[in-house]
Design a protein around this nucleic acid. Structure first.
Length: 249
DNA sequence: CTTCGCCCACGTCAAGAGCC
DNA sequence: GGCTCTTGACGTGGGCGAAG
């Protein structure tokens, strides 16, 4: 068996095991949305997409609780519970409005078209505030001077196609639909539309993944900042306690 | 060197969200 | 209501380090 074939075999088995786990966890019942490729369970097939969003975590917890307490959820309610959450950009922008300065907004993608990196320069990157091996936090928060992805080399080759035409190279504009007569022309038009749709979706998927990574990084950044704040507040509380109730010695 | 296990990125499909 | 966008899920291929 070739390497790829073996991997496929392993992953297929892994997926099967995962689904069995989910089924057993849910008392042998798989929800409609999961069977349809719903968004509320963590993908474990390859390890990617394994980070559940906050909404997903809440959803899973809610589903578990309700499943235990009520036993049966009707399909409509399940659909509501497992409904898709808003986009990363929306969530992040809401977060940024709540915590100004901690979480950056995801900018509209226009800077790349202008030949400059996306404006993430104002983001507080937790480069040096992660917990050390001794449990201490480095409290220095640096401002990222350059594009984050460029620093990590995450998307070295990503490019948005030139927006001038909106069509891939090699895709020829067909004649107007009114001028299509023969089945051959109709088939060609359908093929062309499919190619265009696939190309757009390909780019959209890339962009979506980029945003997702950015979103996760921002959440991690926020966690780090809040942990630092929490630590400071605890220390402040201890100091005030010492002042208010000094030891009599 | 080969195999294994894991991770990452990609392309595609499908379905919900959002806009007009 | 139709169209486009967004994103979860899935399958695939490649890279890399560890183990044999």
């Amino acid at each position: 068996m070739s390497k790829c074939g073996r991997k496929k075999y392993i992953r297929t088995n892994l997926r099967q095991m995962t689904m069995e786990t989910i089924e057993s966890h849910q008392d042998g019942r798989v929800t409609d949305s999961m069977a349809e490729g719903g968004s509320a369970h963590m993908q474990t097939q390859t390890g990617q997409n394994s980070i559940p969003t906050l909404a997903q975590v809440a959803t899973i917890a809610e589903t578990d609780e309700s499943a235990e307490s009520e036993g049966v959820i009707d399909s409509h309610k399940r659909r509501e519970i497992l409904s898709r959450r808003p986009s990363y950009r929306k969530i992040l922008n809401e977060l940024s409005s709540d915590v100004h300065g901690v979480v950056p907004k995801i900018e509209e993608e226009k800077s790349e078209e202008e030949g400059t990196p996306p404006n993430i320069a104002t983001m507080a990157v937790p480069t040096s505030i992660y917990q050390t091996s001794t449990g201490q936090y480095n409290e220095e928060i640096e401002l990222a001077p350059s594009h984050m992805a460029a620093a990590t080399g995450d998307m070295p080759t990503y490019q948005i196609p030139a927006p001038t035409t909106g069509l891939p190279q090699g895709v020829v504009m067909a004649a107007s639909p009114g001028s299509l007569h023969s089945p051959q022309q109709l088939a060609e038009e359908a093929t062309r539309k499919r190619e265009l749709r696939l190309m757009k979706n390909r780019e959209a998927a890339k962009e979506c993944r980029r945003r997702k990574k950015e979103y996760v990084k921002c959440l991690e950044s926020r966690v780090a900042v809040l942990e630092v704040q929490n630590k400071k507040l605890i220390e402040e509380l201890e100091t005030l306690r010492d002042i208010c109730s000094p030891k009599a010695d």
